[in-house]
């Protein structure tokens, strides 16, 4: 079995197989012959007017796949949706990346794409929330914003003329991510949705499902509206600023044990799901976290073989109930 290097005993093996068979039978009805491999013919009904999309090419007048994946048809467009491939950016995607270089006026980020992405100093809001021209002093202080190896959340802005991928972080919700874990999963498991930032209130954690397959699980940080911050700052300053900053620092330095455990539990749930190759959404993650807590499993036990089997069974159950509802 792919990616699953576990020592399952006979009983567990049987259960996993049964769960997977169930999953297969659930999906078979929708598209059975849509999977293609490299150099397979794609049957096209109306030969005269089709548009060849990604992952296809023409050979002797026939459409041929150049990737392994699933054939998708949208009106006249025929393309192959690759499964295991690197991330392909689309404008507006929310991504998580790691700074690898601080260059003049820009940061270079590793985002699981075929090139490094660029975040310009000018395409991000300064932490103090001031809109102004970036000066040479700002440029010199770039390391005070992001350093090498920092994990950052940003949005895809688009490709520049020279083919570089540019990012932007023009809101308080984007920026440096601290106190948490970065997980790397295959990008095809992340579904594009309206919402990629999630605040799991019951655990006090933030979850960012980056479209590029980088997932951030960290302590919840209150997003402050810059306008509100300015106002509150003014009023606070009148009171007693030194006292305030002291207490804020103290809170920041210690993350409660419970939150840390929740971070680890959520991270392990994502690990299990991605190894099994299941689609990753908030609902599924919370379900798996609840499953582990209801079974009173320790965090490290979540990566044991038994839990993998349970997750596979749970997923099969979930999908079959979804189907029944329809």
């Amino acid at each position: 079995m792919r990616g699953l290097q576990l020592s399952l005993n006979k009983n567990q093996k049987l259960r996993v197989e049964r769960a997977l068979e169930q999953l297969e039978s659930l999906s078979l009805k929708s598209n059975s012959d849509a999977s293609v491999t490299v150099a397979d013919n794609i049957s096209v009904d109306c030969e005269d007017a089709i548009l060849k999309g990604h992952g296809t090419t023409e050979l002797d007048g026939r459409v041929v796949a150049t990737l392994c994946g699933v054939v998708e048809r949208v009106n006249k467009l025929v393309y192959v949706r690759a499964l295991r491939a690197r991330y392909k950016p689309e404008i507006g995607d929310i991504i998580v990346g790691r700074v690898i270089e601080v260059a003049p006026k820009r940061w270079r980020l590793e985002i699981n794409f075929s090139q490094d992405a660029v975040l310009m100093l000018s395409s991000m809001n300064l932490p103090d929330g001031i809109q102004r021209r970036r000066t040479a002093i700002d440029e010199l202080n770039m390391r005070s914003i992001f350093e090498e190896n920092d994990v950052i959340c940003a949005e895809v802005r688009g490709f520049q003329h020279d083919g570089c991928l540019h990012l932007q972080a023009r809101s308080q919700k984007y920026g440096k991510l601290e106190i948490g874990q970065l997980l790397t999963i295959p990008p095809y498991l992340v579904k594009k949705r309206k919402q990629h930032f999630h605040h799991l209130e019951q655990y006090g954690i933030d979850l960012i499902l980056g479209c590029n397959g980088y997932v951030w699980v960290g302590e919840h940080v209150e997003v402050k509206d810059p306008m509100l911050v300015d106002q509150s700052n003014k009023s606070e300053q009148q009171n007693a600023d030194s006292e305030n900053s002291m207490s804020a620092n103290e809170v920041e330095t210690c993350t409660p044990l419970e939150t840390r455990q929740n971070i680890c539990r959520t991270a392990n749930a994502i690990r299990v799901l991605s190894t099994l190759g299941f689609m990753i959404t908030v609902e599924v993650i919370t379900e798996i976290v609840n499953l582990s807590t209801s079974l009173n499993l320790d965090i490290h036990e979540m990566l044991g073989p038994e839990f993998y089997v349970l997750v596979a069974e749970k997923e099969a159950e979930r999908r079959s109930s979804l189907r029944k509802k329809r």
């Binding site: 792919r2 999953l23 297969e24 659930l26 999977s35 491999t37 498991l189 299941f278």
Partner: peptide, 15 residues
């Protein structure tokens, strides 16, 4: 082998 692998990935991923 590749076709089998692609099918596996696709049905496990789900909708």
């Amino acid at each position: 082998i590749l076709l089998e692998n692609t099918k596996q990935l696709e049905f496990r991923r789900g909708v």
